[in-house]
Amino acid sequence: MPFSRDSVLPHLYVNGRFLGRSVTGVERFAHMVLDRLHDRQPADGRAPGVTILAPPGIERPAKWPRFGFRTVGSGGGHRWEQLSLPAAAKGGVLVGLCNSNPVRPRRALTVIHDAAVYDFGQGFARSYRLLHRTLGRILARRSHIATVSRFSQARLAAILRLPLADITVIPNAADHIRAIAPDPAILARHALTPGRYLLIVGSFAPNKNLPRTIAAFQSIARPEDRLVLVGAAVKSFAANGIDSVPDGVILPGRIDDESLMALYANARALVFPSLYEGFGIPPLEAMQFGTPVVASTIAPVREVCDDAALYCDPEDATALGTAMRRMLDDDDLHLRLSAAARARALAFRWEDSADRLLEAVAAIG
């Protein structure tokens, strides 16, 4: 049931530490949910129901004039979060949208996006892994926990020893990208033919499975085929034991959102071969354009993509290659999955995510 706009809520204090970082998937979640909450704030000058609390050096975001904003304490990072932030949030509920929060406040909501530090520890530095494993276990006893998928809900419940129902699911969405006008100049720049290239959006992080996927592409590629990797750099190939960028693989480098939207809109398919995810945002972004997905069989990706993807075992290079070749060659399959992708994209909206956040805050009281 949608959140009732007439409900009486406590004041929301937002942990603004994320505003000092680059916008990746976790920070995008925070921005989008806050955008939708801001749309609901009164414009008549009354006291807002949301106040962002930020460490020194972070400027007030111009796009949220109806929110309160306060610079509190000194320093930054985890030290600021644990020592300076709690006192500033007294009298309301402190919301941490990006995997961390102070451990002192009892009236708090913390969004932990996945269980990767516990399940896929090899993807993190030892110090980061130890810190966030410890922090997560403490927050599970001190804060209300939310996450972005039923898969992550189940994993966190098992690891943190919480009842499943005590963890709120607040999904990601991608409907914000409909407001971004694609810039097709990137296709000409890299000699890409619309509908004749495969796209990967991801880095060489271990869970993204790129070396195996590149090898799979090489095994099935014809001279005219292209695989476009957004997010991977040339130096990453050497670090992963690949001497040079393979034929047919295109690296656009750092690109803006308009260029990325053009790549999504004109790709034959998105390839998303992850070994581990908490959600899987790129498939949902691709589906906004009706672009089909060659997807890993892991549970969170199935949760997001449902029947709008061609699935394959991410640890089987032969299966990956076969799926890519089939998506390039089978027009009937492509047409069916394109229609399914457009329909699936409608199931995720940031407006609904904001409602779920407010439902969770209302339950804290």
Rank of each mutant, 00 (worst) to 15 (best):
residue 256 D to Q: 15
residue 214 I to T: 13
residue 220 I to E: 15
residue 262 A to G: 03
residue 214 I to G: 11
residue 235 K to W: 06
residue 256 D to C: 00
residue 217 F to W: 12
residue 258 E to Y: 02
residue 225 D to R: 13
residue 255 I to T: 02
residue 215 A to D: 12
residue 215 A to V: 06
residue 243 D to G: 06
residue 211 P to C: 02
residue 223 P to H: 02
residue 264 Y to W: 01
residue 272 F to M: 06
residue 266 N to P: 08
residue 222 R to Q: 15
residue 242 I to L: 09
residue 250 I to R: 01
residue 215 A to W: 10
residue 245 V to G: 00
residue 259 S to C: 15
residue 273 P to Q: 11
residue 248 G to Y: 00
residue 249 V to T: 04
residue 227 L to M: 15
residue 259 S to M: 12
residue 228 V to L: 06
residue 258 E to P: 10
residue 223 P to I: 02
residue 215 A to P: 13
residue 252 P to F: 14
residue 227 L to Q: 07
residue 211 P to W: 08
residue 265 A to Y: 00
residue 241 G to S: 01
residue 215 A to Y: 11
residue 251 L to E: 08
residue 215 A to G: 15
residue 252 P to L: 09
residue 239 A to K: 15
residue 240 N to K: 01
residue 239 A to L: 14
residue 214 I to L: 12
residue 222 R to V: 13
residue 262 A to V: 07
residue 217 F to N: 09
residue 231 G to S: 06
residue 236 S to C: 00
residue 218 Q to N: 14
residue 237 F to A: 05
residue 252 P to Y: 07
residue 260 L to A: 07
residue 226 R to S: 08
residue 264 Y to C: 04
residue 271 V to S: 11
residue 242 I to S: 06
residue 245 V to W: 00
residue 243 D to Q: 15
residue 237 F to S: 02
residue 233 A to W: 03
residue 243 D to Y: 09
residue 243 D to N: 13
residue 230 V to T: 03
residue 227 L to I: 10
residue 273 P to E: 06
residue 233 A to T: 14
residue 219 S to V: 08
residue 230 V to N: 02
residue 247 D to I: 01
residue 240 N to V: 04
residue 243 D to R: 13
residue 214 I to M: 04
residue 235 K to D: 15
residue 227 L to A: 10
residue 217 F to K: 11
residue 228 V to T: 07
residue 258 E to M: 12
residue 267 A to E: 00
residue 221 A to H: 04
residue 258 E to N: 14
residue 228 V to I: 07
residue 256 D to R: 05
residue 229 L to S: 05
residue 214 I to H: 08
residue 224 E to S: 15
residue 273 P to M: 07
residue 258 E to I: 08
residue 217 F to H: 04
residue 234 V to G: 03
residue 248 G to T: 02
residue 244 S to D: 09
residue 231 G to Q: 08
residue 257 D to P: 11
residue 252 P to K: 09
residue 214 I to E: 09
residue 232 A to F: 05
residue 235 K to P: 00
residue 221 A to E: 10
residue 271 V to G: 05
residue 215 A to T: 12
residue 266 N to L: 03
residue 229 L to E: 02
residue 235 K to C: 08
residue 241 G to E: 00
residue 272 F to S: 00
residue 215 A to M: 14
residue 254 R to Y: 04
residue 248 G to R: 05
residue 248 G to N: 10
residue 211 P to D: 01
residue 234 V to E: 15
residue 273 P to W: 00
residue 233 A to H: 09
residue 239 A to E: 12
residue 239 A to R: 15
residue 216 A to F: 11
residue 231 G to A: 08
residue 227 L to D: 07
residue 264 Y to G: 00
residue 234 V to C: 10
residue 248 G to V: 06
residue 259 S to F: 12
residue 232 A to V: 11
residue 219 S to E: 13
residue 271 V to F: 14
residue 219 S to T: 05
residue 253 G to W: 00
residue 217 F to G: 04
residue 233 A to C: 09
residue 230 V to H: 01
residue 242 I to K: 02
residue 251 L to S: 03
residue 244 S to V: 10
residue 231 G to Y: 08
residue 246 P to S: 04
residue 251 L to I: 09
residue 267 A to Y: 01
residue 261 M to P: 00
residue 225 D to K: 12
